[in-house]
């Protein structure tokens, strides 16, 4: 009994600030404005603007997850060939840590200053005859947002994938070589299969990262709510139509459901990965 007292503060805190909010979302999604049980909020998810926001979010997250994973994995491998504890590796991991976690407002400003209407790259390209300022492409979820999201996905991939690449033992490469295998043979039969589960796992993690992101889009897009996090934000900050107060919670529940499925797959893959790359 005395031992239980020691973990009481932790459980009290996480109940108030983690479990209660989760329950508020889960239960609220099934309540109407008068706290009576209803399924209306869930069926409201089939409204065209919510469906298209969901599908835009999924598309944005999937494309940037794959792009980020491919380029991030190449970068992670390149960095892993550098000396451990060397400056290059330190610089890259710290830089990627910042760019992956620190996005939001800063990234929005950075891209406006670079490829926005008055951005320096826009002005340069204008001189070369390419007009970027002619449209609002930077503010559209299937063009500009994809570029900005990829910008924070690549660094995240480096951070998640570097430990896996570092787990490749040089002996495996040497063994393949001494058996007459080429570089292609090594990647096709040894390196690739070993890294595949962690690569897919990392891609899933990148998907949830983009799917959950709110700050970058909020700072970049000032009118309209093309993606689902902005839709949810909109239900919080503006007047909501009477009787639909809890649609935000239903959308939030939908997000959690998507993320939970993806994270479960991730956990399964992670368990497979540790079999070979456990360090």
């Amino acid at each position: 009994m005395g031992a239980l007292l020691g973990v009481l503060p932790f459980f009290a805190y996480t109940t108030i600030f983690l479990l209660v909010p989760t329950l508020v979302v889960v239960v609220g999604a099934f309540l109407d404005g008068n706290s009576r049980p209803t399924l209306a909020n869930l069926s409201a998810l089939s409204q065209p603007q919510i469906v298209s926001a969901f599908s835009r979010s999924v598309l944005l997250s999937a494309v940037t997850a794959v792009l980020g994973a491919v380029f991030g994995a190449l970068l992670a491998y390149a960095v892993s060939t550098a000396r451990e504890g060397g400056t290059l590796r330190r610089m890259m991991t710290s830089l990627c840590g910042v760019l992956a976690q620190f996005g939001g407002v800063t990234l929005a400003f950075a891209f406006v200053a670079t490829v926005g209407f008055q951005g320096f790259l826009t002005l340069w390209l204008q001189k070369a005859g390419i007009d970027l300022a002619g449209s609002t492409w930077l503010y559209e979820p299937d063009k500009g947002l994809m570029l900005v999201y990829t910008y924070f996905q690549i660094p995240l991939m480096l951070i998640v994938f570097l430990p896996a690449v570092e787990g490749l033992r040089p002996q495996w490469r040497e063994a393949a070589e001494s058996l007459g295998g080429s570089t292609w043979d090594y990647w096709r039969h040894v390196g690739g299969p070993i890294l595949a589960p962690s690569f897919i796992g990392a891609t899933l993690l990148l998907f949830t990262n983009a799917f959950s992101a709110y700050a970058t889009a909020a700072a970049l897009i000032s009118s309209g709510s093309p993606i689902i996090p902005l839709q949810i934000g909109g239900t919080l900050s503006s007047e909501v139509i009477l009787g639909q107060e809890n649609i935000g919670k239903a959308m939030a529940l939908g997000m959690v459901a998507v993320v939970a499925v993806v994270m479960t797959l991730y956990a399964v893959l992670e368990r497979r990965t540790t079999r070979w790359l456990g360090r």
Partner: peptide, 27 residues
Amino acid sequence: MRRTIEFICLLPLTIPAIVLVVGLAPV
């Protein structure tokens, strides 16, 4: 108790900040 604590601590990874905001409003 270790696995329970670990589960609770890693739980926020599956709850996007925007969802947390929705749930935290009454809190």
